[in-house]
Design a protein around this nucleic acid. Structure first.
Length: 715
DNA sequence: CATACATGAATTTTT
DNA sequence: TTCATGTATG
């Protein structure tokens, strides 16, 4: 995907400087397309040359995908053997590692569970009495943001601005108590708890502070306050701990990022971190990568012009040795449909293009980017109509599917019997004659004894509150789980693991459950096939093979139990065919880090691209982030860029007049609007007419005998 | 309890 | 317009 172009066979001066600065803290301001992954991987190689062990080098990313890609690139550079022990993972994965190793120091069992957002939502609903989903979701959001800022429930309550926030803070307190009781953590805790652990426990601090000889962090501009603190704690500088090392001897590190591409402020990322870095590490070496290897001059100038309107943290201006290329085009469309049609026409034109230079354009060379997911819909329609293959980025991920979550709940329960949310999901999936009533009684009983549901289930005194049949069902469930756990601990190797898992699915009758629950048989089948994929995947892990997007790695053979421990954190396993030739539809956010020869930025309207909610005001900061988003969009393009906006835009029910985004003017394009090819316009009108005629005919046919709709009058 | 209808609300997303 | 949630009804 974002492979270094062959036009850059060796590192440029700035890249070399970044790679060679091994001794102290280093900030690499990597402009879009400036070869930042190359710098990171080459620096890893350099560190190895200088005698660091693989295991002493940590490269931290934000997504599993980025981690897999980086590992792959590193492997290509230093060979599989050296790459194997490199610690290349996400912040969260590193957190898991730390907690599994030493979490007991802060009272966490090594087998703690990781809750997904569904579980969290369920617990929050519970904590707040019987509340609706909407409110619970708001709490979830607020709590996550608080945690990202390093606030606990007390701090949140103290800082609460209104009653709603005070309530949320109190819910958060109860929520935290529940998590502790469940021996469970949420995603945010995976960062916060390791940090707390290092702050509180000198031994852990010593161990982890000495763990790495060099720490590299990708996309620093996306770090939130807690991640930043964790990074500092790991390198031993200005540790958050009272009486901490105070920046005496600090592990060298390399932070790589681009303040102009910070687009995740809304979920807690803060470029304040970048601002503080030079202050907190006075010896920080700041290196800007300004040579761009991706885009043509016209595109780069547009990008620079847009971002110039933002206040600067660090001075930086992209330039490239590529020629000017084609001018950026702006197109004006009547509405969403028209826009989609023009984009389709554009794609067809690119494909059929003059074979003069550059060879043929593949579908995979083209991307349509937009602000919000719902904008994909019209494009999907029109692309399908034109028989153009496409994929929509960020569709539902494999692990979000209900059937996979069901199975994950079972696995979690096996790993950690005290994981009550997992218990509740597993015990009712599939239905086994244990109903709400029974579970409510069990829950009450467990709460009274401060025990988990699973513990409570075996208590002799439980018979006082539950009748024979219910208790029998519960006991049978408990025995089944225990037995499964026992076998899971002792089963290793791919074949045995697969047999175990399939046997389990059969025992619980899961396939039948899917068929019963889904009235569409084909859908049920699709779900079952997902389940089988999942089983295969776990089995392969047990056999010592780990597959992620971007590659397959060898690791130790694991027991099913071990494999189950890691599943919550892994998100994407569905290796979507990377080399399939399809057009990409993506949000601007999801497009970050990717690039295409031909890019269309769609719906670049005032109100949509600088996004304006119903009754939120547009603060300067929000506007700046929107502008960075536009910048990210522009810099995805290698050779051609089309920016389109709508004269009529739908907002809710009504259609309102559309105004081009202020960012269009900020691009300072000299070429004016590109006119739609008159032949295309004619073609379109003809197609519209034909469609209407067809619709009328269909209506007449289906309503034969009844008074026909006033044909054509519906407009 | 399950289905049907009405009402209301609409970014961005990873782990 | 569409999706999801809440209520009313059989």
């Amino acid at each position: 995907m974002s492979d270094a172009p062959s036009s850059a066979p060796s590192l440029n001066a700035a890249q070399l400087e970044a790679v060679h600065h091994l001794a102290g803290p280093c900030l690499v301001l990597a402009g879009a397309g400036s070869g930042k992954t190359r710098v990171i991987t080459h620096k890893i190689a350099k560190l190895l040359q200088h005698g660091l062990e693989s295991r002493q080098i940590a490269a931290i990313t934000f997504t599993n995908k980025a981690a897999a890609e980086m590992r792959e690139r590193a492997k290509g550079l230093v060979g599989p053997r050296a790459a194997k022990d490199l610690v290349i993972c996400t912040f969260h994965a590193l957190g898991v590692r730390m907690l599994r190793a030493d979490g007991e120091r802060i009272g966490l069992k090594p087998s703690f569970s990781i809750l997904d957002s569904d579980d969290v939502l369920g617990i929050l609903r519970d904590c707040g009495g019987h509340t609706d989903n909407v409110l619970a979701r708001r709490w979830q959001w607020a709590i996550s943001l608080w945690k990202n800022q390093g606030l606990d429930a007390d701090a949140a309550e103290a800082a609460a601005a209104d009653d709603d926030e005070r309530v949320a803070a109190r819910v958060m307190r109860r929520y935290q108590e529940r998590l502790a009781a469940y021996q469970a953590v949420d995603f945010d805790d995976l960062i916060g708890l390791p940090l707390a652990m290092l702050g509180r426990d000198a031994e852990a601090r010593g161990k982890w502070g000495a763990m790495f000889g060099h720490v590299l962090v990708d996309e620093v501009q996306d770090t939130n306050a807690v991640q930043y603190e964790l990074l500092k704690a790991l390198v031993g500088g200005a540790a958050g701990a009272p009486g901490g090392a105070g920046g005496k001897r600090c592990t060298p590190f390399t932070a790589v990022g681009d303040d102009d591409q910070s687009i995740y402020g809304w979920r807690g990322a803060t470029i304040e971190n970048l601002r503080r870095l030079p202050q907190e590490f006075p010896s920080l070496k700041v290196i800007a990568l300004e040579q761009n290897y991706r885009s043509t001059g016209h595109i780069l100038r547009a990008a620079n012009a847009v971002i110039a309107a933002n206040p600067k943290l660090f001075e930086k201006k992209l330039w490239s040795e590529h020629g000017d290329g084609e001018p950026v085009k702006v197109i004006e469309c009547d509405g969403e449909e028209h826009e989609a049609e023009r984009v389709v026409a554009r794609i067809q034109a690119l494909r059929g293009g003059r074979a003069g230079e550059g060879g043929t354009v593949r579908f995979a060379d083209i991307a349509v980017l937009y602000r919000a997911n719902h904008q994909a819909k019209v494009f999907e329609q029109k692309l399908r109509a034109a028989q153009i293959p496409y994929k929509v980025s960020g569709g539902q991920s494999f692990f979000d599917r209900a059937e996979i979550r069901d199975l994950c709940a079972w696995l979690r329960l096996i790993v950690n019997n005290d994981d009550d949310p997992a218990f509740l999901r597993a015990v009712t999936t599939p239905k086994r004659g244990i109903g709400h009533q029974t579970l409510a009684s069990l829950g009450e009983f467990a709460a009274g004894r401060k025990a988990s549901l699973f513990e409570a289930l075996f208590a002799p005194t439980l018979s006082a509150v539950l009748k024979g049949k219910a208790i029998d069902a519960l006991h049978e469930f408990g025995r089944f789980v225990n037995d499964l756990e026992h076998r899971a601990r002792h089963t290793t190797g791919a074949e045995d693991a697969k047999a175990l898992l399939l046997g389990w699915l059969k025992d619980i009758g899961y396939e039948q459950h899917l068929l019963d629950a889904e009235d569409n048989a084909r859908l049920a089948e699709a779900r079952w096939s997902n389940v089988l994929d999942f089983v295969d995947w776990i089995a392969r892990r047990c056999g010592g093979e780990i597959t992620q997007e971007g590659g397959t790695f060898e690791s130790e053979r694991q027991s099913v139990f071990d494999a189950a421990q890691t599943i919550s954190i892994i998100v994407s396993i569905a290796e979507r065919g990377e080399d399939t030739d399809v057009v990409t539809l993506s949000t601007l956010h999801a497009a970050k880090g990717l690039e295409w020869p031909h890019v269309v930025l769609a719906g670049v309207n005032e109100g949509l691209l600088p996004f304006k909610g119903a009754e939120e005001e547009m603060t300067a900061e929000r506007l700046q982030e929107e502008r960075r988003l536009m910048y990210v969009g522009i810099t995805r393009a290698q050779r051609t860029l089309v920016v389109s906006w709508l004269r009529r835009r739908k907002r809710g029910r009504e259609t309102v007049a559309g105004v081009p985004s202020r960012f269009v003017a900020e691009m300072k394009l000299d070429e004016a609007v590109a006119k739609e090819d008159p032949r295309e316009r004619l073609k379109r009108l003809r197609a519209e007419l034909a469609a209407r005629v067809q619709a009328n005919e269909a209506a007449r046919a289906s309503e034969a005998g009844r008074p026909a709709e006033p044909a054509g009058a519906s407009r």
